[in-house]
Write a protein that binds this DNA or RNA. Structure first.
Lengths: 220, 220
DNA sequence: TTTAAACTGTGTATAAAATACACAGAATAT
DNA sequence: ATATTCTGTGTATTTTATACACAGTTTAAA
């Protein structure tokens, strides 16, 4: 018989030593590529391995708040909108102790955030999806799952968060889509589809320095 | 500064007392209605409240295994296929102690499983969606989220698990869909769509006791 | 056992949505 | 001034989804 049982401290406490952690796949769009923020860990286990930023759930904090804390420490990001991806509970996913992780993803503008290695981190860097190093723990799976969820959300709800600046051209938006979904779209059809979703509005400005003088749009 | 920190017992253990629980929304289809299996709790807190079956994660078990254990105790169900829904971490969602829950849903045939109240449960019952009692803890939210996920999965991937018997008519399948999605479909269009998905095959048998003598299908 | 009632099983016509496609205008680079 | 490169737009075609009617089969009732 397992120790699974009623959740009642008044009667019996069946839980055992197990850490709850949060991990976050921070996506950014830079140089026309989708990137992920990775940190290099300076302590064992997985010393000198790249991995997703994460850490133990904070006392008296929700999971989301804990993610925000972790990322604030690393990047100065104050409050970002998070999307929950999944939970990971394989018994040996952490070599030292039992850890159950809940993973999230966030969408940010890399240029907004200085990334500063500190605490248990020796390096921190934006990586393109196509040149990801091998990752510590089971974080490669976490990245795959986060990416899948991001793609699903992008296809259905057109949420691209803060991946683009406040004002952007439709071509820039299309390039973002093509990059993330790894799929090409016809320019006219893409514009048609996006505009009839009625979530963007044109500004009076045009983007300079680019031929054709495209109109800048912003979110409504 | 929060206690969020590196996940390394060798350096410091930042985690604190917090139980990890699993909760499961077990769906069944009976009397042409979608039902949920609820249990009535016989101990405080939330004594005599109805709620989702659940319990603490078992030592050395994954979250899924823990759900299977919980449900096996209640219903005799051996191994069911589970779908992870979400994690819940509000600080005061459990009045006595800090509990983070990961919720799942499962699809079963009610008639297959005797449901037996035991341990900390005084009653157990299948409830129709439209006559759910008010639930303990934050389980009403969990039910809503599980239902939403079920609907999404049903729409996209045609996974209806074990909600129907091995052999079923297309009309029965359609009624299942209409019930879960709360939407009516044209019979001919529904059949066309389902059949061209190529996941069902007709058997040689017809269903008796029903006018028209419909053909029985099964999953490929 | 005959008849009525209720359900099954099928195809086509229409509407809506997605896709394919070309050229004139605007800004930049030469 | 001219060439180049990008922008911005409409329509025709294909695909997909929707609407819709009648003959055949089984059960229930007379």
């Amino acid at each position: 018989m397992s120790k699974t049982g009623p959740l009642d401290t008044a009667v019996s406490l069946d839980s055992y030593e197990c850490t709850i952690a949060v991990e976050c796949c921070v996506f950014g769009f830079q140089d026309n590529k989708l990137k992920i923020l990775l940190v290099k860990r300076s302590i064992e286990p997985f010393k000198d391995h790249w991995m997703l930023p994460g850490g133990a759930m904070g006392e008296g904090k929700t999971l989301s708040e804990s993610v925000n804390d972790v990322l604030h420490n690393l990047t100065g990001i104050k409050k970002l909108s998070l999307e929950q991806v999944a939970s990971y509970s394989e018994v040996n996913r952490h070599p030292v102790k039992r850890v159950v992780s809940v993973s999230f993803y966030a969408l940010v503008k890399p240029e907004n955030y200085p990334v500063i290695p500190k605490n248990y981190i020796s390096d921190i860097k934006w990586y393109s999806l196509d040149e990801l190093p091998s990752l510590g723990f089971d974080h490669e799976k976490l990245v795959g799952d986060a990416l899948e969820k991001l793609r699903d959300n992008l296809k259905e709800h057109l949420v691209f968060g803060e991946l683009l600046p406040d004002r952007f051209t439709l071509t820039e938006l299309q390039e973002l889509y093509e990059n993330i979904l790894e799929e090409k779209f016809d320019r006219r059809n893409f514009r048609k589809k996006i505009l009839q979703m009625n979530i963007l509005e044109p500004t009076n400005e045009k983007k300079t320095g680019v031929k054709g003088g495209p109109v800048l749009y912003r979110k409504k």
